[in-house]
Design a protein around this nucleic acid. Structure first.
Lengths: 241, 241
DNA sequence: AGGCACTCGTGCACACATTCACAAAGCCAG
DNA sequence: CTGGCTTTGTGAATGTGTGCACGAGTGCCT
């Protein structure tokens, strides 16, 4: 196949940022990206919307529409070139360079996150871990020394950190958020079970285990309350998002 | 105020389960519930939709519509009785009794989850932790001894477990899901970064840290690509969901 | 060269979610 | 008992997301 013509609208598209990608699509692009990475690793060069859809557990039309927001990078009759699509999605998601993150809270969860390692591999190296508890300062987690929360501004500035992760108990989370914002962080991933109050310009995403479990509980309860059922041996299999 | 008349449609509403609550609402009810619990603890008896909305970081009309799916439990001109609302939400979410969970994977994340403790408090006691690695079996995490994954069916049956939590590496997650399903679990909370393939009847929810970070990355990248900005000192504060 | 099989990109209709706006309902003061 | 204030509950309008269906390219085979 002929080489792509990446001259126009490739490196830094002039009006690319004008185009807004729907939230629902943005939340699926990372999934496509991971699958495409796996496929590339497995030696797959091209993939159809249907193939990608099956692996991602979604509708093929949705895949095509999602990808169309990036531009028309598919080839009719053939599909999408995996490597090129990976590049385009990475560019759109801003994954062409690393985004160092700082973790606030060195408790159970903070330790798990720091020790996870998957962060760094996926372009989010841990620039630092801080805690307010001085007895925790100095211990080493996943290769990173825990520092005191007062050092947050320094870490954020010297390491150019834009993303903060809150892994504190609920009671300490708002203070953590305030400190992160004051230090200059503009995006926050919050694991604490509270609603944060932050300036409008700050992007916050919440991960709340209790909420997830309670949603599952709702469906379980609903199942139990509905018609008597004995659906145990699953027959059909369907990918689930 | 006159006493409520809980006779009709209280204990087990006959056609309550006929009424389907929208997904978006179900995902917000746990947030309301936590806030209401805090308010009750603080001695607040009544709360208006606007007050609850502010604490939850959402629109007041949305709160009213969400709550209206539970029934008309508010009093015009007054608001909602906190204790009663807590009861109704708990009932609707199926939180009137405990839902024991089993954790698969005793690595970093599994340990953090088991040690978290917040599970049990919120009605999701850890019925067991299992791992495929025999060297991990026998160690104790958060008061629970790690058992071998082959014991999964026994744990699920004796403890009446409906909810499984997958905290394994991605490569092991599908196997974990298969084992959970075979053991009789009907809801799964998946922390592994893969799309699980399970029978249709199984409810799956996914929590993927990499995806969340990449979504934040998108917004950061967008911010950087847009007009030059120096929005640092936040002026307005707004609760964010 | 022409026809055929395949797959993308997208217009359109439908479903779901959010927000506004207001009538209905309750409380309180006098 | 009446009038005024507050707040709910919900119809209607708007916005967002999903999925079908099909035209339009593309490559392969004869």
């Amino acid at each position: 196949m002929c080489a792509r013509v990446p001259n126009v609208a490739d490196g830094m598209a002039p009006d690319r940022n004008r185009r807004r990608i729907p939230d629902a699509t943005v939340s699926r692009l990372p999934v496509y990206l991971r699958i495409l990475g796996e496929q590339a690793e497995a030696g797959v060069d091209n993939i159809s919307s249907e193939g990608l859809a099956e692996l991602a557990g979604v509708n093929a039309a949705k895949v095509r529409k999602d990808l169309s927001y990036l531009g028309s990078y598919g080839t009719r009759g053939v599909g999408y070139e995996v490597a090129y699509l990976v590049y385009q999605i990475r560019r759109e998601l801003g994954l062409t360079h690393d985004w160092p993150v700082v973790i606030v809270g060195a408790g159970n969860l903070g330790q798990a996150l720091a020790g996870y390692g998957g962060f760094g591999e996926r372009g989010f190296p841990v620039a630092g871990i801080v805690d307010i508890d001085t007895t925790k300062v100095g211990t080493v987690l996943g290769g990173t020394r825990v520092r005191h929360i007062d050092e947050l501004p320094q870490i954020v500035q010297t390491r150019r950190v834009n993303i903060g992760v809150i892994a504190t108990p609920g009671a300490a989370a708002q203070d953590a958020a305030d400190r992160l914002v004051k230090a200059g962080v503009t995006s926050i991933l919050n694991f604490a079970p509270i609603v944060l109050s932050v300036p409008r310009a700050i992007e916050v995403r919440k991960v709340d285990l209790a909420v997830e479990l309670q949603i599952l509980s709702y469906h379980e309860q609903r199942r139990a309350g509905g018609a008597i059922h004995a659906v145990q041996s699953g027959t059909g299999r369907s990918a689930t998002a």
